[in-house]
Design a protein around this nucleic acid. Structure first.
Lengths: 345, 345
DNA sequence: TCGTAAAATTAAAACGTTCTAAATATTCTC
DNA sequence: GAGAATATTTAGAACGTTTTAATTTTACGA
């Protein structure tokens, strides 16, 4: 592969000129620029980004750390990040934690080897890897984290208001007459679950419905876990008439379980998810879900990171984005009230 | 950030020694190695991978070009590639074409800027970007392509036998008594569609069922396209009793359409997909699908690439992997024969 | 104690860019 | 046509590693 010296020699100019020509610099006489570009093209010369990165101390890459590749919500968010970053001249390098705390740790350490100009970080194991998180902040890596961590006050954050989302979801179910509303949650994953649960509790309390511990189910984060959680909840003596899942992925897992139990959605049981992944709208029974505004989230994360890159010592900024309930077929009137109210399924 | 000189100075050794120490070289006295490592750790020194890449002319990154981030089959395949690559000491850099031929072109050109040691390439627009593909081959970028292209005989390839898969799917439907079997296909995306269609045709021909052009539906590759395709097929005068979709994503889109038409799966219509994405098994009506063996595919792609990296001038290798039909609830006996046969839904 | 072999360390030249400051060309003003 | 102002080009030093070949140190046998 030809390098900048080869081109310089053939074009009878200095490497500086070649460098400028390749970047369309206006500092160069147009004739020379075109001539050099022509030579470069003829030689199939492409500047090495590695060398450029070294010289500039800038890779034009931003790292994106995502908890899992199995949950489409992260992929969909990333798609927006990628697009927005592209518009700012950055490429994106994704790291999937894939539910392995050691992988998260490894990635966080890898950051120091300086591949990336900045980092967008959706944390997966803040408790287990707290030391790494703190170290990252201390090292002043340009960083935006999704969700505000109280012990990282200096790190820019953009959060989705999980409590509000949880509240909206449960409020919706209460409005439909449900009172036995289960909540399925993954105990890891930041306090996401925590925020949503608070919303769940607040909504219940507001209507004077006592929280029943047996209706709060902890589980993993795979489709399969949603399936199992549902099985368990449906086996309860006094089973719930509605289930609110921490995420759509878990909610999707519930459908097969409900069907196997010979029940109908939403006739016998209502299902509400969180995230509004693209599949939610196209299921056999379209899923009611609290939508994370993925595009807005992505754009805000990126804007915050860009600001940080430009103003490294600006005061930290903590933003919050409101989610929005999208009502579809999977949630309906509580069967106990169905006679009185009408809508049946 | 401390660099190798700083460490060398503090540890009172040369940069060469630091370099060796950081890589646990046995050429170094153990005492010095440990001492240098201790100094490095104290200074929070991490070698710059950029500089190392430049010096070694090797990034330890392999690029993975995928057609879309919206179809889980690619994400799931990538997860295996990532894992396998990690075991070989490589990181992975993903590029999503996102159904934009210009993006494919841009990525293929970017490769020459030498970020990656090798490339795993699932092509999206071989017809539109044929010149780029050819140029890539000509430039001898270490490369494995998924699916053999006749006009790229020199490029290693690993294919899934799409024709065999299509045949198995349609054969299964024929066995269930269906004769009006539709095929929904995306006209782009390599000859994937083509291979599957051949299988479709072969199976029909074998049983003496004439191919009905009106049952072959062309569409895009989104969930939504599956929905629309189904709507269109169900509106036909003599509507099909089974639909074979080019991929599970499209098949998933069909469920809502079927339901809206007031029909039952598989009682009124059978659905078969392709890819066996993780969602297929957990849907309200679990989906019959031709499974791409994603792990095997990933491992074979990677093994082929590694071989190419080690033996740059070995003769090209073209491998083929057999898919496997996974039968679930979405396919059942043809309603026209249901009375005679039994199984009802 | 010396010579030699083996082990450990290092000097210095890559790797392929960018960038700063300086040098050289060109244009303009009067 | 001289001098100033401006436009264009360039020398050479970064950037932070790795690597080769050479040098220095240590170990060992006689």
């Amino acid at each position: 592969m030809a390098n900048i010296y080869d081109v310089a020699k053939i074009a009878r100019v200095s490497t500086a000129t070649v460098s400028l020509a390749m970047r369309d610099s206006a500092r160069l006489n147009e004739a020379t620029r075109l001539r050099v570009q022509a030579v470069a093209a003829k030689m199939h010369y492409k500047p090495s980004r590695i060398a450029a990165s070294l010289a500039q101390r800038k890779t034009n890459i931003i790292g994106v750390i995502l908890p899992s590749s199995l949950n489409p919500v992260y992929i969909e968010t990333h798609a927006w990040i990628e697009r927005t970053a592209g518009a700012c001249g950055y490429d994106t390098q994704v790291y999937f934690i894939e539910e392995d705390p050691r992988r998260e740790r490894r990635f966080l350490e890898k950051i120091y080897e300086q591949q990336v100009d900045g980092l967008i970080f959706i944390p997966a194991y803040p408790d287990i890897n707290r030391d790494c998180y703190l170290h990252l902040a201390e090292a002043r890596v340009p960083l935006v984290i999704r969700d505000h961590l109280a012990w990282l006050p200096e790190v820019d954050s953009v959060s989705v208001d999980m409590e509000q989302g949880g509240y909206a979801a449960v409020r919706h179910l209460l409005d439909l007459g449900h009172t036995r509303i289960a909540f399925v949650q993954n105990p890891f994953g930041l306090g996401h679950g925590l925020g949503r649960r608070k919303g769940y509790q607040r909504a219940l309390a507001e209507r004077g419905v006592a929280e029943d511990e047996s209706l709060v189910h902890l589980c993993g984060i795979h489709l399969d876990d949603g399936y199992k959680a549902t099985k368990a909840l449906l086996a309860l003596r006094d089973r719930p008439t509605a289930i609110f899942f921490q995420c759509d992925l878990l909610a999707m897992g519930s459908f097969a379980a409900v069907r196997e139990a010979g029940l109908k959605i939403p006739g016998d049981i209502s299902i509400v998810g969180f995230d509004d992944i693209s599949f939610a709208a196209c299921l056999e029974t379209p899923l009611t879900s609290v939508a994370q505004p993925k595009r807005e989230l992505a754009e805000t994360l990126l804007a915050t990171l860009m600001r940080r890159l430009e103003h490294p010592s600006a005061p930290p900024r903590h933003l919050m984005i409101a989610p929005e309930l999208v009502i579809r077929r999977s949630s309906g009137v509580c069967p106990k009230r169905a006679g009185a109210r009408g809508r049946k399924d």
